[in-house]
Amino acid sequence: MAHHKISVTVNGSVESVDVPSNMTLLTMLREKLGLTGTKNGCTAGECGACTVFLNGEPVNSCLVLAVECDGAEVRTVESLARNGQLDPIQQSVIDHNAVQCGFCTPGVLISARALLDRNPDPTEEEIRDALVGNLCRCTGYIRILDAVKDAARVGAAPGTGGSR
């Protein structure tokens, strides 16, 4: 099987990675770059635990080939906090007890950040719709919805988080 040398910007740093054709972006992040904050829950684009930003839009990284990311810009949960300052959505998730086991949380945070980036003042229906691809078995979701709503109220401090 062919390998490909790709160049990809991950969390602001340019990485040169050698990837086989069938390696997913998820596997590259976790196993080539050691960025284990992004989780593998189903490998089928159903659970959302692997959600990351690809060129500014949230994707299931288990359904993207690493080789497709040559020249792309990827952001993971590890990029949300900057200089010890949490992104407002991270703080809001803590404040609302919207995290339990924490396995879905990285993907939830990316989906939520992406929503707030494109719609700074979402309705509850819009939040539910934006998070429907992030399965959570612990919280019952309402705390997550509230956390997103409150983070929208706070807004994003300049220079923190997101895909801008």
Partner: peptide
């Protein structure tokens, strides 16, 4: 169709 992140792709 499915979810937002799936519809990105």
């Amino acid at each position: 169709v499915a979810s937002y992140q799936l519809r990105t792709r």
